[in-house]
């Protein structure tokens, strides 16, 4: 089953009010497409959904998912396959001040 690694900047929002120091989080979930894998992650961490996807279910504009190091291109449908044993990284753009 794929392993999903959630970057610290996202993992800190697994609680309603984040603490000062949160490490990355990883979990092993079922799923054969990006959508299925993300839905499995959201089943485990329901509040994470609104941080990773927008109200249309698309990956947020400045959030990226890598499957075995390759960025997911179709951020709307999220239909790209995820091989068994793949590593999926959820990450965000680096910006701001």
């Amino acid at each position: 089953m794929p392993t999903v690694v959630i970057a610290p900047s996202l993992a800190r929002w697994l609680t309603a009010s984040p603490g000062s120091s949160v490490a990355e989080r990883s979990c092993v979930v079922a799923g054969a497409t990006v959508r299925e894998v993300l839905d499995a992650v959201f089943a485990e961490y329901p509040t994470l959904r609104g941080y990773v996807t927008d109200e249309r279910g698309a990956l947020r504009h400045h959030v990226v998912a890598f499957v075995n190091g390759v960025a997911v291109g179709d951020k709307g449908r999220l239909a790209e396959p995820v091989p068994p044993g793949a590593e999926v990284h959820l990450f965000q753009a680096l910006s701001g001040g």
């Binding site: 900047s9 929002w13 609104g50 941080y51 927008d54 947020r60 504009h61 400045h62 910006s95």
Partner: peptide, 8 residues
């Protein structure tokens, strides 16, 4: 407004 992660 968390920018990358939307409005909460």
């Amino acid at each position: 407004n968390l920018g990358h992660f939307g409005v909460k």
